[in-house]
Design a protein around this nucleic acid. Structure first.
Lengths: 180, 180
DNA sequence: CTATGGCTTCGAGCGCGCTCGAACGCAAAC
DNA sequence: GTTTGCGTTCGAGCGCGCTCGAAGCCATAG
């Protein structure tokens, strides 16, 4: 129930533009079909990060990865799933520090689930705040775009410029607006 | 018209939590009542950044600021308005580089408005992408929170855990979910 | 048999955006 | 007259998250 609702809400947000949504849906869905084991290049490709970064994450203690006969990394399904999670968290702005803490809790065992939940909830709230911040900035930028131009305004016609009437009438330089 | 619409949309987003909205609305509205001139401390306070950062922005060529008899900075209304803008752009993730470029266009005169508009539009799209990214991550985190716990789940009851029925029934360790 | 290519480890380096410290100046308060 | 406090300039340093390069190993291709 809640899940469907969440998914739906998220997918609704995508409607507008194309490029992102493809990888994005990928990220949401490919938890299902993770191969038995993968090479570093394959994982890097999957997560759209560099092998360097993958090695860096391992050095940072975020995942343990087995080696094959040649000493090459072999990522099992669990490691990949963890990396999907980690990548998502990084992408949404969780610091390495916190991720290291979280992982240490995971490795510490079942009894740490409450604390892990706290961390997740905290991060959720951080994301929400950030979205609100960005939405506000977006509004400001949209406003600026809409009221931009005055004398010169080639792209502006496509936007609603009617509300410039609310401003002091002064074609070349606006008065109540930032001078830029 | 469009303005009201934008504002309304932005303000709608705030409803939930308190702390951010206060400063946020501030940022949107205080363009109106900017004093004649301000000290560095006052501006720093207004923008919620450090005097150090203000000096840094000046060194970076983003604003010119006059000095008084003692060599102290005197921010006039125009400088403050520009800094409000700059701070907003920084907050929404525009790199210093781009801001420097933008400001150089502003200082180059009226004929650069089309290019400035391009930059603004580009940044608007960047913000939109970022919001969609974050919304997706948010959904993932919310999903994880909702399906978390299993045996141990004190905070989980407050959330809808009904859809765990969609997962393989396995109390202590989940199967189809990331093992963390 | 030698390339070529992809992997390994290790430590160093980098780009970004601040952030700070040192050494100093001026002015009002005690 | 000294102390307190806020400002100045300048250059260096820092925290973050990668990112890269060197030197070497191994396997397959030509």
């Amino acid at each position: 129930m809640a899940t469907d609702e969440l998914m739906t809400r998220a997918l609704e947000m995508l409607g507008d533009d194309g490029p992102l949504s493809v990888e994005a849906i990928h990220r949401l869905t490919d938890l299902a079909d993770v191969p038995e084991s993968m090479t570093i290049a394959e994982v890097a490709d999957l997560l759209d990060i560099s092998p360097h970064t993958l090695r860096y994450y391992e050095r940072a203690g975020l995942v343990e990865v087995a080696r094959d006969g040649n000493g090459h990394r072999v990522y099992d399904a669990q490691a990949v799933r963890r990396l999907v999670f980690l990548t998502r968290m990084r992408l949404s702005g969780m610091p390495m520090r916190d991720l290291q803490h979280y992982i240490s809790l995971v490795d510490a065992g079942q009894h740490t689930t409450p604390e892990r939940l706290d961390l997740l909830i905290e991060h959720r709230d951080t994301i929400r705040r950030r979205i609100r911040e960005l939405t506000l900035s977006l509004t400001a930028v949209e406003y600026k775009i809409a009221t931009y131009g005055g004398s010169t305004g080639p792209d502006v016609q496509s936007l609603d410029t009617a509300d410039r009437t609310a401003l002091p009438y002064e074609p070349p330089r606006r008065a109540a607006l930032p001078a830029d």
